[in-house]
Design a protein around this nucleic acid. Structure first.
Lengths: 334, 334
DNA sequence: CGATTTTTTGCAACCGGTTGCAAAACCGGC
DNA sequence: GCCGGTTTTGCAACCGGTTGCAAAAAATCG
């Protein structure tokens, strides 16, 4: 069925190596030969078998894309950016969903069996050791959106979540809130832990500001709503920093249900700046992560690793910034 | 670096074929030999190269997953279901994002180069010829969420969108609305076209009901909002059937901004039953597509095609149903 | 025009596995 | 212990490409 190199060679009356070279950029082939081969290939509808060639070249151009968060809409955008970016460079994303898998060894084995050239772990919740497992197996790996300095042996691209937590606290304090709430995502997530640490540290650095801490079960509307309703059984804080925009929106719905006005009675600050936060009926003040840059940079780094797998691990950290919208009172001027 | 069959064979003091067979289920190997090989493999950390074996077996277990909608959150759920379902069967999704690519030939060539065993085209908007291109290239293909009878030569799994349009019209009529609006998705999408046709047909079958038709530029909050605002410059219809939940939510925001109550002044009916529609501040009445079943069935069909690529094309159609929530007045009893 | 250098081509081995076939090992029975 | 039948094993060819090397062809030059 499938047309092979040999078929083309026979048809063109040349050797198999000639055909191979005609399809390899920069190989030593005369223009005449190339034309002859291309003609035969055209006629037979030949296209080279990338997998067979990978056997000798040791390159598959397959990139493992490992993720575990298929519920947060922000990841759809992330997938979009990753798949397009990889495609543009002729790389193919092999998607691994580890929503329920726990053992990194399984994914490592699987991706090694398929000889991926590199792996991108795109997750803000996976434990740090996960990316390390790939590195230990000799697979180049870039950890995107993860904890950046947890393991200096793994390339990391993302934001500094400790700094993000600080920024959140500073933002609330700047606006004159004195009793703050931290409504984090799942406690097991590294992003939650880091933001928590940063938030705490910043509060400690300021006098006269108090904070209470709680955590939602996962990054979802229901979890945010549930947690906020629970919090409302006591007098609420003046403003909450939520682990994520989806949580914020859940919290917002709870507050409105209870007849509290936002930002009049309670302020809300999210993270991610997802599309939805811009919607008129939500209009969420939130911390933007430069997703496009993070993805672009991750891809560039992966591409660089293909040429130089031994490259020293680096952390590429991008700054977060606050997007002003309507769920916090304005900053104090001056 | 990488441990190969040969290394294991030498270590275990057996032939390469013996090692190969030890790793092949159902091959002719004595238990003693298998133990010996497994021990050596274990010690060396060997795992077989799936790509090399695909050369002789002709099977890669790679499945092309082709999609073009990376903006509709419903697709994140679809990706989640597909990737997990495929993984459970030992199949690997090779993701292709054709958000901007137009020519099917490109994707066909690319996926053939990687010798995918089959392709799943998951899209409700791609032109019917797209899946056909894979079939013509001899690649087994399942068209999920697409138009089902457009090309009887391609396997299709999804809903009957014409019937879905009818159901929408019937639902609105049953609730006593007489001046209906159809606020469709992009006109180029097959799903829009089919629902439009069904909606029209059902209206025609009922006396005393009028309808107006318009289309949003894409499936997005902004497009829905914009289109609804435009519609509101004239007196609106009594109830709108929107192409999608996201469009509905955009429309809802426009209606509320204009001080119109839903469902008091205007009714809204969406499609997809996405998670967001359940949120308390949205509470959208919508038409549910059985996504889980569609994905499960698509995967089963793909698996069946692997064993029998010549299998006759079939269409697997699942029924839609209305999810009662708060954006339509209740059905007339009796 | 012939000698020398450079480019192009084909041969053959190899990448990491699988598999048909025949030889070797094992089995039970006499 | 030998025989016939069944398993198990190894050999060698093959899957569809790539590539080092040497021979052939083309280009350069005096």
């Amino acid at each position: 069925m499938a047309v092979t190199l040999k078929d083309v060679a026979e048809r063109a009356g040349v050797s198999r190596s000639a055909v191979s070279r005609a399809f390899t950029a920069g190989a030593s082939v005369s223009p005449k030969m190339r034309r002859k081969v291309e003609k035969a290939a055209q006629e037979l509808g030949y296209s080279p078998n990338a997998l067979a060639s990978s056997l000798t070249t040791g390159r598959t151009k397959l990139i493992g894309l490992v993720a575990n968060n298929f519920h947060n809409p922000i990841f759809l955008e992330i997938f979009d950016l990753f798949t397009r970016g990889l495609q543009e460079r002729g790389l193919r994303p092999l998607l691994v969903n580890l929503s329920e898998v726990v053992d990194p060894a399984d994914s490592v084995r699987m991706l090694r069996q398929y000889s991926v050239d590199a792996v991108i772990v795109a997750s803000s919740t996976l434990p740090p050791g996960f990316s390390g497992a790939f590195r230990d197996a000799g697979v180049p790996v870039v950890n995107a959106f993860g904890r950046y300095a947890s393991d200096p042996k793994v390339h990391a691209v993302g934001v500094d979540n400790v700094e993000c937590g600080r920024l959140a606290a500073r933002t609330l304090i700047d606006r004159g809130y004195a009793r703050l709430g931290f409504l984090g995502g799942p406690q097991a997530a590294t992003s939650t832990q880091d933001r928590h640490a940063g938030f705490r540290a910043e509060i400690a650095a300021h006098g006269g500001v108090a904070a209470s801490y709680s955590f939602a079960d996962d990054y979802s509307f229901e979890a945010g709503r549930r947690e906020m309703l629970r919090l409302l059984s006591d007098p609420p804080a003046e403003a909450y920093f939520c682990g994520d925009d989806v949580l914020s929106i859940g919290a917002l719905s709870a507050l409105r249900d209870r007849g509290l006005s936002v930002p009049g009675d309670v302020g809300l600050l999210g993270v991610n700046d997802m599309e939805m936060s811009r919607w008129e009926n939500i209009d969420l003040t939130t911390i933007h992560q430069p997703i496009r840059q993070i993805v672009r940079s991750s891809i560039e780094l992966v591409a660089a690793l293909l040429n130089d797998p031994q490259r020293d691990p680096e952390a590429r950290i991008f700054p977060c910034r606050v997007i002003e919208r309507g769920t916090l009172r304005p900053p104090r001027t001056g």
